[in-house]
Design a binder for these strands. Sequence first.
RNA 1: GCCCCCAUAGCCCAAUCGGCAGAGGCAGCUGACUUAAAAUCAGCACAGUCUGGGUUCGAGUCCCAGUGGGGGCACCA
Length: 841
Amino acid sequence: MSNASGSAAAQSAQASEKPQQYDVAEIEARWLPFWEEDGTFEVDPDDTRERRYVLDMFPYPSGDLHMGHAEAFAIGDIPARYARLRGYNVLHPIGWDSFGLPAENAAIKNDAHPADWTYTNIDTQAASFKRYAISADWSRRLHTSDESYYRWTQWLFLQFHRRGLAYRKDSPVNWCPKDQTVLANEQVVDGACERCGTQVTKKALNQWYFKITEYADRLLDDMEQLAGRWPERVLSMQRNWIGRSTGATVRYEVEPAEDGADVEPIEVFTTRPDTLYGVTFMVVAADAALAEQLVTEEHREELARYRAALGSVSDIERQSADRERTGVFLGRYAAHPLTGERLPIWASDYVLADYGTGAVMAVPAHDQRDLEFARTMGLDVRVVVDTGEEDPAVSGTATAGEGTLVNSPAWEGLGKQEAIARAVDVLAERQLGQATVNYRLRDWLLSRQRFWGAPIPIVHCPSCGEVPVPEDELPVRLPADLRGEQLAPKGQSPLAAASDWVTADCPSCGEPATRDTDTMDTFVDSSWYFLRFLDPQNDERIFDSSEADRWMPVDQYVGGVEHAILHLLYARFFTKVIHDMGLIRFDEPFKALMNQGQVLNGGKAMSKSLGNGVDLGEQLDAYGVDAVRLTMVFASPPEDDVDWADVSPAGSAKFLARAWRVAQDVASAPGTDPTSGTAALRAVTHRTVHEVEQLLEDQKFNVVVARLMELVNAIRKEIDSGAGAADAAVREGAEVTAQILSLVAPYTAEDMWAMLGHEASVANSTWPTVDEALLVEDTVTAVVQVKGKLRDKLEVSTDITADDLEARALALPKIQKYIEADGGVRKVIVRAPKLVNVVTG
RNA sequence: GCCCCCAUAGCCCAAUCGGCAGAGGCAGCUGACUUAAAAUCAGCACAGUCUGGGUUCGAGUCCCAGUGGGGGCACCA
């Protein structure tokens, strides 16, 4: 670390009269420029100490910083600053996720270019971040909308494309009518657009996808590495989202068509191959091509009518469970693979076109949906698993539990699990099917019909088809001259209207061709930014692999739980692909994850519509940066929400002033040997450090603050009514206070450190070494219970023997009285030196 | 419907292994200082741990059932 000449610390230390009172504005004004000039938090590339990478999820530049940012970054700064104090070489970078729709909407409204709004907001936020005193390395700052960044986003796309992991297909996709763009499954919440809340519709479009499904198993199985270091609920959400289910594929032959032509067999996926003998009919997804292929001429019109009717049913209605079952008979029959029985084939909307094979074998006795359909349509119900429950045909409730297989010649009498295994074997032997794994996870739809994103670097050529833009021609830049109304949503990308831009020579044959006009989902940008932070200025490569070896994976990632699936799953996927490309050796990007809670006001999330927003800037002006940060950290454990109505930034400011005055009162000279100080206070100080180390490890940051308050109280007492301000233990305590406080309240801590006569910065000071001898107490209060109830106490030496302790406890008059009253001693439990429990009667 | 998490003082929250229910703060009250107030300092009070069972010498902590709150998934075959 470099040291700026004429440091503020030196000036402050030299000034013989210390500042008279705690003045927040003055303290902020003193230290903010110092850190910047000093480069206190910049990473030294030649530093060979052990490394730590601490990362906060980078912000989206929507206006200025708000209370949510304040909480997240106050919390994320703690592990970064603590690692620094423990002597690690710490990377703690900052950047902006700066592509995205709001910039575009603002540009349309203001007749401007999205870059104007974006970079203005970034400047505003950057200034606020600096004031907020995050210990970030500003020299590595990046913005995903910079050409120097999205060039590499495009480069990655090309690598995915080359590996067959980026492809186009026609498919019914989620379409937001308001934003006029497609959405990924992950961006549809309860049938509505995650961003604007508009009901999402389906639209058949040709779109780009990333083949994340090819990584489903690894994404699921590698979560083992994360267990215990990621919040369990995030892992469970990802597990649910990937939704692996194991079962079997079964092939059903279909009767020939009217003209005698063969009809392709139907394949179905089932998790319950044991119920094969209970199949009484087949159902295919009404909206799948399969339904059309299977329907007989006689029923074609009926199917068409049914499909037309479905178009008007919303996803919400469709998914409601208590809806009546509908469907049409297709006129055709399949053959049961084991019994040859004729099974009528139906089409219904309760079977999903894009899960499994889009067709199911219906086992109404043991599947509730099939049962409801069977009862509605008057189809057979055949019990093949005896669970001891009432006949589903009578009760209307399918029995899905454990039981004994019946009416199933090939596996009669087996239990459910054995029967499943046996069924898979039988199917495989007779070549009628095989064990199969299915996923809920779908491929990631990444193209967007919007402007403010990274253009997809593909050229469409009439003769060569889909041609990647050569890597040395990257980036494919966004046109700088589109603005205002030209960016308004029209159902196709605004880039399509930029005719100069669209026209390109085919990189393969040189003939006139057109550029792909879609841009990438902004989640693509954020799926790899943590790697670019390692080497943000590299023009030659996406990043230097040796830097990745040195820093990655991220030791501590901090961000909101709202990204539990989207960003975190995508980033894990990208990391695995980049690993497979040979650029990195690890395949999980974030070793540990911490989710901070939200900031609420009056029990509710702050929002404009509720009018309960709290302005961060006003809070900072009123109480100071340190007090706001301290309040965020002290209010509750990091993962819990903070309700601003329940906390007291004024109380935090009061504590900071109290801590500051302790440093101001210290009357001994810098460098005074602490061992000459009062032992009792020294013990408190060292016990505090010891405990704080564990609390930081356990991420109980709120308790760290509480312990610090106790320490300050103890020092205050020593100054006022103990050994006095000149005692060496008082100095030691004040220095430790400044160091621990620096994790949360850097301005105050820095000022205290300077008042105590140290060179700045406290952020790079050495964490105190705990003197184990001071932790040992020579006496302890032993508790004496009678029948588990506290009856008396004893002051005893910590090394007292069990026998001694028992004897002393039994000799206590009070205890004697209880023993007599309760009929004598039956048993004595001794846990020396802390507890004796006398069992009477 | 399925799965997960939580419940301690008026409020936010502590409580290594099962061992004194309370560390810290907010709000409240009393006193000192002050002409007064603010600030500051000193001190005080408040719950028996959501309910009901169980295990144990002993349960906030472990087990079972329930209530209340939060979250995730949900026609995924």
